[in-house]
């Protein structure tokens, strides 16, 4: 890092951001816009997951509940003609409230217990969304007519990406992050030394819920139709987490690298291969798990490559 002229790195990031920002304006195909919209969505989900899963070291396999609650909140409010900004505000606020209310009981669980209990939580919410037919439309789903907001949704998601990555940088460089890391490494020791573990843990969960929740709201606004398994299903639950793990949990770049890598691999396989793309995708995941402890970001060759680029 030190060998790199500081400005060059920022220039590169600014260029990238600028390029992403003008995509919808260049008259490029909307496929490209949708493609990046979902990429952004995964970056937001993976990075916000990683605040808890990576820095804090609590494997929150149920991160997508916040996304789902956000999406349903937005959908239900929109359907009842609540104004747009209030709908978005609540689609962020409700997941945060939910996070606050589960943080005490769930954070009593440690290690694999926490992972599994949160995993069970998604299933519970999926079932509730399925059964509370009056509110959510049940398995029939929730359909709204919101106009076609691809471009707006794109910019909203892009802003969220910037915000969530900046949050991750901030956590990485401040005392707050240091406290989280100490909890990850030795929670009991950290508490004994005066770190208020409970407060830090629930703070982090609430922040991560904010991003996932508002992303859920934007998603619903754009896609206009959700049903319980499309927002509380296993696919949306596991994909961002796997991406974060694959890229390198607990680093700023990790989740982003993981998302970009898997997303491009997926897209490439889906469009160029007629059969067995999921199998290949699975094999790639397994190989990374086997041979890249700590994910791509912590891989020696990848680090070397980063240096080489710079």
């Amino acid at each position: 890092m030190r060998s790199v002229p500081f400005k060059l790195k920022w220039l590169f990031l600014a260029l990238l951001l600028g390029a992403l920002a003008i995509i919808p304006l260049t008259g490029a195909s909307t496929y490209l816009v949708v493609f990046f919209f979902f990429l952004f969505m995964f970056v937001v989900l993976a990075t916000s997951y990683d605040l808890v899963g990576g820095y804090l070291g609590y494997l929150n396999l149920g991160h997508s509940v916040f996304f789902g609650i956000g999406a349903y909140t937005f959908g239900v409010l929109f359907l009842h003609k609540v104004n747009l900004s209030l709908s978005f505000t609540l689609s962020a606020a409700l997941p945060m409230l939910f996070a606050a209310s589960i943080s005490y009981p769930f954070f009593r669980l440690r290690g694999a217990y926490f992972a599994l209990a949160t995993f069970g939580l998604i299933r519970l919410l999926e079932l509730l969304a399925q059964n509370l037919t009056g509110l959510t439309g049940g398995s029939g789903g929730l359909s709204i007519v919101s106009g076609f907001n691809l471009t707006t949704a794109y910019y909203a998601a892009l802003c969220l990406v910037v915000a969530v990555v900046l949050t991750s940088v901030a956590v990485n460089r401040t005392k707050f992050g240091l406290a989280l890391t100490s909890i990850r490494e030795e929670e009991d020791v950290a508490s004994a030394l005066g770190v208020n573990a409970a407060a830090y843990k629930s703070m982090t969960l609430i922040i991560s819920a904010f991003y996932a929740g508002i992303m859920g709201g934007i998603y619903m606004w754009y896609i206009t139709y959700i049903h319980p398994s499309s927002v509380f299903g296993l696919r949306i639950a596991l994909q961002p987490i796997v991406m974060a793990m694959l890229g390198g949990s607990g680093t700023v770049g990790g989740p982003v690298v993981g998302v970009v890598f898997l997303y491009f691999v997926d897209e490439f396989l889906m469009t160029k291969m007629a059969y067995l793309h999921v199998a290949v995708y699975g094999v790639i995941m397994t190989l990374v798990g086997l041979f890249m402890p700590g994910g791509i970001m912590r891989n020696a060759r990848f680090k070397y490559f980063l240096k080489w680029v710079k």
């Binding site: 195909s29 909307t30 496929y31 490209l32 816009v33 949708v34 493609f35 979902f38 896609i223 139709y225 499309s230 696919r235 889906m270 469009t271 793309h277 999921v278």
Partner: peptide, 20 residues
């Protein structure tokens, strides 16, 4: 295209079909 029975993938490929 294969949409994996996933609405997000479906919407992406329909955009692709129309615009690419």
């Amino acid at each position: 295209y294969d949409d994996k029975s996933d609405p997000n993938t479906a919407i992406k490929f329909y955009e692709r079909l129309v615009t690419v």
